[in-house]
Design a protein around this nucleic acid. Structure first.
Lengths: 328, 328
DNA sequence: CCGAGGCTCGACAACGTTGTCATGATGGCG
DNA sequence: CGCCATCATGACAACGTTGTCGAGCCTCGG
């Protein structure tokens, strides 16, 4: 900036005035300054600006599990959209379901003085965020609640969704239904298991632990589970898959088998409608989660100090065929 | 920081020494300082630190078309991975194929003094980056080359891929092949069209403009194009789809039709193998693109000053069935 | 007992920017 | 012509941090 000032024959303060469109600069002077800026390729240093003004950095941080997962990238996109409306940039980082990595990322964002943070919790301990939150940094948790702090949270109706799935299968005559979920220490996985159990109760079906597997989420593991379930004295005729990854892997394992169980998957996914049979799912909108969370965050930044909110977004069952098969 | 100093009864410089693990602080003093830091929830301000040290901000910027598109989110993930190895955070922004938005995002990143930038060009003008590049900021272009600056670029073999696709279809007896591509002002779309034409020449097939449609990339538009092509005196018996979005929309339009053309799609996509028939694609690895680009960027940051490189990543044809159908 | 040298620690400036205030020039008005 | 308001501009401090340098103290060898 001092280079620009020297070249234009003015003081740095005048340059500052020009780049900030402040009034009280003679048009001819402004012209000279702009020419100098152009010639030198000057770009003001936002870091220094924010430091001096004590204003916001114009960034928000987002810690999620894996940007590469379409579910989270849909969320990211929606967040970016909202952030743009509010003139903020988004810093993202993937925790890979590792609590210490989540913490590391979040603290790094804090050190960068983000205006607010969106977190998909990987662990159950979030006490490390308390100092920042007390200092006024809003934090919104997405998809899963925080372990040990009260804060705004945006979830989907995991229990209600799985109840729907079981009811749907039961309505088509299934009485032996299996549940394949993710590791039980993941909040959503656990909730969906609870929903599964409650769905069984409501549908008057016996809940059988032998038909439940939590954890395996690769093809090998799922094939193994399926084999075990098939060998049961009373095998399952239908399966509820606990998330989009599991559904996809399950489909791959089942591909080409003559006898396929009925299936309802949690999470919608692209091309589910074009498979054979089309896959019935519990659908919810990733971008709606991102949008709700981001808007909640920005309302806090706008000064909303009401008590922490817990938003639970609705899910809906999309019948496509795979859940409508009758037990053979 | 001065609060911490006051509370610990030391000067701010000593606090600085403690948070930076500098030697020469008495253990007892350090203890007091750490206690004060903990009590006050102090977190050092990275912005001020970077300003003072004149060092890098530890961030890189990434402008792409849409984080929500699995192709780009795969790239993003790979970039994040590499950035992490080099201790950098990633700022992302979606241009939505809008050149002015791309420019706005890129300049914003510059103002934040990112150490380097990855850009999926939306437009053809990148002169606005010249001042920063001259000032030493490395820029790597991904997926498409820059319009008017020479810089590192990572591409996939668009032409070779489409040539492969045509050869594959021709080998199965097709002589009337259609090409559905994206808008021709998009580099990849145009390259793939060139590859299509060259593929026709090499396979001894007549290149017929009536069977080419560039631009429509929603279901409605694609249905319309298909209708037009089907009404041709010599209709197409096979289609090459120019990218993953077009392939998916095309599949949806074709779903349930009795007579379906053979199909090869550019870009692989999840579940392509489970469709009926499974979709033959020209596959390339999104994460390989991101990895290559990020590594190129960091090699520049490490001081590599060799002339700009153009990396062209290979593609391969994955035969799955949809391209192996013979003309009826 | 003195000086050298090591160990702790603090005062100060500086990074690039902007807010505050002061300065000088200009113009209008009585 | 003198006064005051207005305009255009600059000098300076400050944001939170760290690099430089020097001060004070203690220890140890001569």
């Amino acid at each position: 900036m001092s280079d620009v000032a020297r070249l234009a024959g003015v003081s740095i303060k005048t340059v500052s005035r020009v780049v900030n469109d402040e009034p009280g600069v003679h048009p001819a002077t402004a012209e000279r300054v702009l020419a100098a800026i152009d010639q030198l390729g000057f770009r003001r240093n936002l870091g220094a600006r924010n430091l001096r003004r004590g204003s916001s950095t114009g960034t928000i941080g987002m810690v999620l599990e894996d940007v590469g997962n379409p579910f989270y990238s849909g969320i990211t996109r929606a967040v970016e959209e909202v952030a743009r409306q509010y003139g903020r940039q988004v810093l993202t980082g993937s925790s890979d379901e590792d609590p210490s990595r989540e913490r590391e990322l979040a603290l790094e964002f804090c050190a960068r003085r983000v205006d607010g943070m969106l977190v998909v919790p990987a662990g159950m301990q979030h006490g490390y965020l308390v100092p920042e939150m007390r200092a006024g940094m809003p934090v919104v948790f997405l998809d899963r609640p925080a372990g040990d702090v009260v804060a705004d949270t945006v979830l989907v109706d995991n229990i209600g969704g799985t109840v729907l799935a079981v009811r749907h299968l039961a309505a088509h005559g299934h009485t032996r239904i299996a549940f394949l979920g993710d590791a039980p220490d993941i909040f959503t996985a656990n909730e969906r298991l609870r929903g599964f159990r409650e769905g069984c109760v409501r549908a008057g079906i016996r809940y059988d632990e032998d038909l439940v597997a939590m954890g395996p989420h690769d093809e090998r593991g799922i094939a193994e589970v399926l084999r075990r379930i098939a060998e049961h004295r009373q095998p399952a005729t239908a399966v509820v898959a606990g998330n989009n990854r599991i559904t996809v892997h399950l489909l791959r394992v089942l591909a080409g088998r003559p006898h396929r169980p009925a299936l309802v998957g949690f999470d919608d996914f692209e091309l589910a409608d074009l498979l054979d049979p089309p896959v019935t799912v519990i659908a919810h909108d990733a971008s709606a989660i991102g949008k709700a969370a981001a808007e909640l965050l920005f309302s806090r930044l706008d000064g909303d100090t009401s008590p922490p909110r817990r938003v639970v977004l609705p899910v809906r069952l999309v019948p496509r065929g795979s859940g409508e098969m009758r037990p053979s």
